[in-house]
Design a protein around this nucleic acid. Structure first.
Length: 527
RNA sequence: GUCCCCGUAGUUCAAUGGAUAGAACAAGAGACUCCUAAGCUCUAGAUGCAGGUCCGAUUCCUGCCGAGGACACCA
């Protein structure tokens, strides 16, 4: 049960009963202990709109809240200029601990996505070379976001779109042949070059090479990151199965295309794009966009996703509108959300350099994973919001690997396991909280509240895709446990207190284990 | 030139328009007869600049400065 949603409901009813309707408000988590557990600033808004004193409005709402919420609230306070602060009562905290112990691994499972099918497509780097630290940024992000959706109750799939079609494949072929049109270079190209047989057609070679790269290089790196896709989708498949032709036909038939300068354009402007887009080039070949529209038709029509999230690099920002227009033309408006991950810049010799395969200024994810444990890598990337231009310094990353906060979180888990082991309590038998009413210490109450926040974190992240919230929460939860451990002796002579604290420790374990699992990070029993 | 994103502590990052801007690392100080000290406690330290809207701005608007990205019949 999300207590925050209960507060929301109670507040809504209270407002209605006091005659304040039509105000869209949110329940805020109080930052200060003195401000209780949740706050409402709605009285300030009402005061502004209705030109009345917000303090008086707040006072009225407060009195109503006390009546409506007496089951959950210890007290409600009004503070200038009109904040309403809500303090949860002990009973509701006890009930919630009990709920965690009953739900165990399924604690945090929501019904938000019930009956909905969602896909997260991420990384999808071209199969023309190894994953760089830059394009792999989408890995932990997309994987974790998908895990959040699973937790939130969505039927979820993770997908990788393989761009095994078009010019770049030909270029890859030339590169493997090492002829005049070669562009890519590196050890992997040499390796492929040495494996060449009699074949001389660059496209065929490129295709062959792309599959080897995908299988032996990209997939290997992805798996090292603990990422397992549900679908590896081939762009070529769309062409082999006439999917692109069909989409083009459909658009033509609906008068959404026109010919100009020998090419076929899509009237993207009619769907809010800033320009029309080419679908078929003068050479008669379809553009990437045409394929991508066909791919998304597959996602919505064949696979019946209610929602698709594409996690892209910021260099594709200009392509978003074109694809959205295409999707709208097919009748799937608003079913796609695109997350643009800002670029990773690397620092070399004290200077920032753009991550570029052609300039050779890149670090492969594989190299990084050889030196830094995957848990550290995932935590490191997850901490940054999508909008952050990530500055990456390999020396610093190596140096800070041991000091990474992920160990702080993992240590909390190991500590919990150690306590549970020392307690001689059979934790598999604990299925409910019997002594939660004895938990009165500041550190205990604070830990309970942190555990309960887990559901809110899942809900918020499933709604706004802000995955960086997770490691932050994990740190706060771990801190709350460490504090509890230091302030309260768990195993004591008082058997009831001991039992109460063991129960709380176990609840902490579930919350911590669940959050780490979602982030794709291991929960060690020992450290 | 147009568009997108960003500018917060020494560093890497947080902060749905809310109350005293949070962490981590680095710096300084402290506590162990006690369940894992990879822990705990304390100190010091920041919103690029200039305006505007608002009861209230790191957040919204305008301008400037600075960094990255996009402006293809490439994928």
């Amino acid at each position: 049960m999300l207590i925050r949603n209960e507060v929301q409901k109670i507040a809504k009813i209270s407002l209605k009963k006091e005659g304040f309707e039509g105000f869209d408000f949110q329940v805020l988590k109080s930052k200060e202990k003195a401000h209780g557990d949740y706050s409402l600033s709605v009285a300030l808004e009402i005061g502004k709109k209705e030109k009345v004193n917000p303090m008086e409005v707040a006072e009225k709402i407060k009195q109503r809240l006390e009546k409506e919420g007496k089951k959950f609230f210890e007290k409600v306070e009004v503070l200038p200029p009109g904040f309403i602060n809500i303090f949860l009562n002990h009973k509701s905290l006890e009930k919630l601990v009990d709920e965690v112990l009953r739900k165990r691994e399924s604690f945090g499972n929501l019904e938000l996505g019930k009956g909905k099918k969602i896909q997260v497509e991420f990384v999808s780097a071209n199969p023309t070379g190894p994953l760089t630290v830059g394009n792999a940024r989408g890995g932990p992000f997309g994987d974790t976001l998908a895990n959040v959706f699973i937790k939130a109750g969505f039927t979820t799939e993770k997908a990788y779109y393989i761009n095994d079609y078009g010019n770049q494949i030909k270029t890859l072929g030339h590169s493997v042949l090492k002829d005049d049109e070669a562009k890519y270079q590196g050890e992997y190209i040499d390796f492929l070059h040495n494996r060449l047989d009699k074949e001389t057609d660059p496209y065929k070679i490129g295709k062959w090479a792309s599959y080897i790269i995908l299988k032996e290089v990209i997939k290997a790196t992805v798996e090292k990151m603990n990422i397992f896709y549900d679908e590896w989708f081939s762009e070529s498949w769309l062409y082999e199965n006439k999917r692109v032709d069909k989409v083009l036909e459909f658009l033509k038939k609906n008068n959404l295309t026109y010919e100009s300068e020998g090419a076929i354009f899509f009237k993207a402007k009619e769907f809010g794009d800033n320009r029309d887009r080419v679908l078929v080039k003068t050479d008669g070949k379809a553009t990437y966009l045409a394929g991508d529209i066909a791919y998304h038709e597959y996602k919505f029509k064949d696979k019946k996703f209610n929602k698709v999230i594409n996690v892209w690099g910021a260099d594709h920002a200009g392509d978003v509108k074109g694809l959205e227009a295409g999707i709208e033309a097919l009748g799937y408006k608003d079913k796609l959300d695109t997350i643009l991950l800002q670029f990773v810049t690397i620092e070399q010799n004290g200077e920032q350099v753009k991550m570029s395969k052609r300039l050779g200024t890149y670090i492969t994810m594989d190299d990084l994973l050889n030196d830094v444990p995957v848990d550290v890598v995932r935590f490191f990337f997850l901490q940054k919001s999508a909008n952050t231009h990530l500055h990456f310094n390999l020396e610093l990353a190596l140096e800070e690997s041991d000091k990474n906060p992920v160990y702080y979180v993992k240590y909390a888990h190991a500590r919990i396991c150690s306590v549970l082991l020392n307690s001689n309590v059979n934790i598999t038998k604990i299925k409910k909280a019997r002594y939660a009413h004895l938990l009165k210490e500041e550190a205990e109450l604070n830990l309970i509240k942190e555990i309960l926040r887990f559901e809110e974190i899942i809900e918020d992240t499933a709604k706004d895709y802000g995955v960086h919230r997770l490691p932050q929460y994990a740190l706060e939860l771990a801190a709350a446990f460490h504090k509890f451990y230091n302030d309260c002796k768990i195993i004591t002579e008082d058997k009831k207190i001991s039992q109460a604290r063991i129960e709380l420790t176990l609840a902490s374990k579930f919350a911590l284990n669940n959050i780490l699992f979602i982030m794709g990070i291991s929960s060690p029993e020992k450290m």
